[in-house]
Simulated assay, not measured.
Amino acid sequence: MTSTPEILCIGSVLWDIIGRSSSHMRQGSDVPGRIIRVPGGVALNIAMTLRRQGMIPALLSAVGNDPAGQELLADCRRRGLITDHIYLSEDLPTDIYMAVEGANGLIAAIADAHSLEEAGDKILRPLTDGTLGSAGAPYGGFIALDGNLTEALLAQIAVDPVFQQADLRVAPASPGKATRLLPLVEAGNATLYVNLEEAGLLCQTEFPDAASAADGMVTRGAKRALVTDGGRASADGSAEGIITRQPPEVLVTRVTGAGDSFMAAHIVAEARGADREAALMAAQAAAAAHVSGETPYD
């Protein structure tokens, strides 16, 4: 596929292995359910949602040149995603994520993104070698960046002139990796999409609600912060002020990927000219459709 991308999605592109049960679960639970394997990773989840809503994304990531990687790339191309710029590794395996979900939400998850981390800045070469941009002519469009990159690489991106002209949108891979984004918060040149827990970790405090978390993120230095809090009100904070909105009430059937759907829909809405209120509404609607099962995996 050789179409010109409208947005670059940088980060994890891997296989999700998800076990899901309709039962409430706890440590040690052994219950019936379903186990599926689907394309995943924060960057890929965002890209798939962007494509479903009409944007053309290109992926910048690392994938192993193994059967799992070849199958994953073929699936991405079938979905209309540009894979031309992915770093294909001969010695690193394709990454994988495993999660267990019950009726009471995410029980546990393990993300094996070691290949992406070991590939390092090799995944960014198209932004420096003139393919998509260079130091003299930096890429100026939308970039969706995920926190599965190493702390050192994220710190490099925060100050790299190659990224200074882009509309940089950033999401943590998980609460456990949220503090990796501190350099991007302090650089003040990115919009961050976080949940309440991640905002607290980045600001080293606990917030009672999304509005106070968004305000705290902006005070800490973030250019802009979108904060979600499950079924409670979400917030959009910037120098223009804080706005909040209650998300739709839905029956939750899955949780993995909800934040990615929120972020992607928000980017699409703003790319089409939506104001802050309308963009927040669109993001919440997409996340609600995802967790309710209305949005299909394929």
Rank of each mutant, 00 (worst) to 15 (best):
T4D: 10
I10S: 05
L14I: 09
G19A: 15
S21Q: 05
H24R: 13
H24L: 13
M25L: 15
M25K: 00
G28L: 01
D30N: 11
V31P: 04
P32E: 04
I35H: 07
R37I: 11
G40F: 01
G41H: 05
A43W: 10
R51M: 02
G54P: 06
I56V: 14
P57M: 12
A58D: 10
L59E: 06
L60S: 07
L60A: 06
S61T: 11
S61Q: 02
P67H: 02
A68L: 11
A68F: 04
L72E: 13
L73K: 02
A74Y: 07
C76E: 13
R77S: 11
R79W: 08
G80N: 06
L81S: 10
I82F: 05
L88C: 08
S89D: 06
M98E: 15
V100K: 01
A108W: 02
A109N: 09
D112Q: 10
H114L: 10
S115D: 10
L116N: 07
E117Y: 05
A119K: 02
A119Q: 03
G130N: 06
G133F: 08
S134G: 09
A137S: 13
A144K: 08
D146L: 03
N148H: 15
L149N: 06
T150W: 12
E151A: 15
A152H: 12
A152R: 13
Q156M: 12
I157S: 03
A158D: 08
D160H: 09
P161H: 08
P161N: 08
P161W: 07
Q164T: 07
Q165D: 15
A166V: 10
L168W: 13
V170L: 01
A173V: 06
A173N: 05
P175W: 11
G176T: 03
G176E: 15
K177V: 05
A178H: 12
T179L: 12
R180V: 09
L181H: 11
L182I: 14
L182E: 07
L184Y: 08
L184M: 12
V185T: 09
A190C: 11
L192R: 11
L196S: 10
A199I: 12
A199N: 13
G200N: 12
L202V: 13
F207I: 07
F207P: 00
P208D: 14
A210D: 04
A211R: 05
A213C: 11
G216Q: 03
V218R: 05
T219E: 15
T219W: 04
G221I: 06
G221E: 03
K223H: 11
A225Y: 02
A225C: 05
L226W: 01
L226H: 01
D229W: 00
G230D: 00
G241A: 06
P247C: 05
V250H: 01
T253N: 15
R254I: 09
V255Q: 14
V255M: 09
G259M: 06
D260R: 07
D260C: 12
H266I: 02
E270A: 00
A271I: 00
A271S: 14
R272A: 10
G273W: 02
G273C: 02
R276A: 15
E277A: 14
A278I: 05
M281V: 04
A289T: 07
H290R: 13
V291M: 04
T295V: 13
P296Y: 09
P296M: 10
D298N: 14
